[in-house]
Amino acid sequence: MITIIDLEKYYATEEVRTIALNKLSFKVREGEFVAIMGPSGCGKSTLLNILGLLDDPDGGSFIFNDIEVAGFNERKRAELRKHNIGFVFQSFNLIDELTVFENVELPLIYTGVKAAERKERVDAVLEKMGIMHRRKHFPQQLSGGQQQRVAVARAVVNNPKLILADEPTGNLDSSNGNEVMDLLTELNEAGTTIIMVTHSEHDAKYSHRIIRMLDGQKVTENILADYKSSVAP
């Protein structure tokens, strides 16, 4: 599904040029659950931004669903993004002024889904995430775990093929964190590809494969023992 070859990204200030990604290459197959780990500043977030088509690499190749997308302009990336990719952030990034329902509805508005169908699909996904009773609440009125469920609901409402999760449990206590990880696992089992950046070895164990990074490069890659039998605790 995703193939990156020799991916490069630099950040330049007036005096210093920082290398964020240094000829990084790997593949992710459809249906995989991949965790990316590494210390702060190793380039994880940069990688995720590029994978999420939010940012453009400075060099190398990025093939998404058999299409070379490196060098795509903003408009093309946005088009591809809104139909294929869902995001889950550490800080949830819900819009405070919108209700739970409206937050989840947002991606459907931008992909041009009709109002009646939007309601149906939002309701369905809220039901599935177990937050239907909160649909009229505003984000501040919810607990962290509930907010992240809304964020996950928003990420999947468009039935994306790929979910990118940036430390999805970072702002949650362990029991809420586990719930969210269970949710992601369920989604993965239903066929959604997931790429997750995390600091937590515990969370990484939910995945099939862990890619460890340092200074913009891949250091190791371990395939977890129970991959294929594939049932996480």
Binding site: A78, K82, H83
Partner: peptide
Amino acid sequence: TKEIGVRKVLGASVSQ
């Protein structure tokens, strides 16, 4: 800023 960022990530166009 944040809200606009979120909306863009979710697929809003510049003109929207």
